[in-house]
């Protein structure tokens, strides 16, 4: 990748941080169920995409499937999460957006 390209990429990431802030106004209509684990979900799962990725993928994933999804976000996409974060997020997603959970509001 050319130097020029690398610079452009860097600029892109800086700009993106800014654009996330503006986008939040529209994403703020997304409501996830309040419970233990939600703060970790909000912190870890809204960096790269809005939280409707979780909503639309519910409620049909069992705990193992959510675990697979979260691990993919960490290992493939690069989500910076500790093992504790992962455990809290998986438990939360399984309880509120897992297979058999009540349909999203």
């Amino acid at each position: 990748m050319s130097h020029k390209h690398a610079v452009r990429r860097a600029v892109t990431s800086v700009m993106l941080a800014a654009s996330i802030a503006t986008a939040a106004a529209d994403e703020s209509s997304i409501r996830l169920t309040e419970d233990a684990g939600l703060p970790q979900v909000q912190a870890s799962c809204s960096m790269c995409h809005s939280l409707d990725y979780i909503l639309m993928n519910s409620p049909f994933q069992d705990k193992a499937a959510w675990e697979k999804t979260v691990n993919k976000m960490v290992k493939v996409m690069g989500a910076p999460m500790t093992a504790d974060d992962v455990a809290a997020v998986v438990a939360y997603l399984d309880t509120h957006y897992g297979k058999g959970a009540p349909a999203a509001p």
Binding site: A23, I30, D52, Y53, L55, M56, N57, S58
Partner: peptide, 28 residues
């Protein structure tokens, strides 16, 4: 026949310059 969560979050929403379309995700 979509997942219930996709039906619930699939609102009609207009991006700038677009007519209202079915929103699957805001960002991206």
């Amino acid at each position: 026949d979509l997942p219930a969560g996709a039906v619930a979050s699939g609102i009609l929403d207009a991006l700038p310059g677009k007519r209202p379309l079915i929103k699957r995700s805001f960002r991206p």
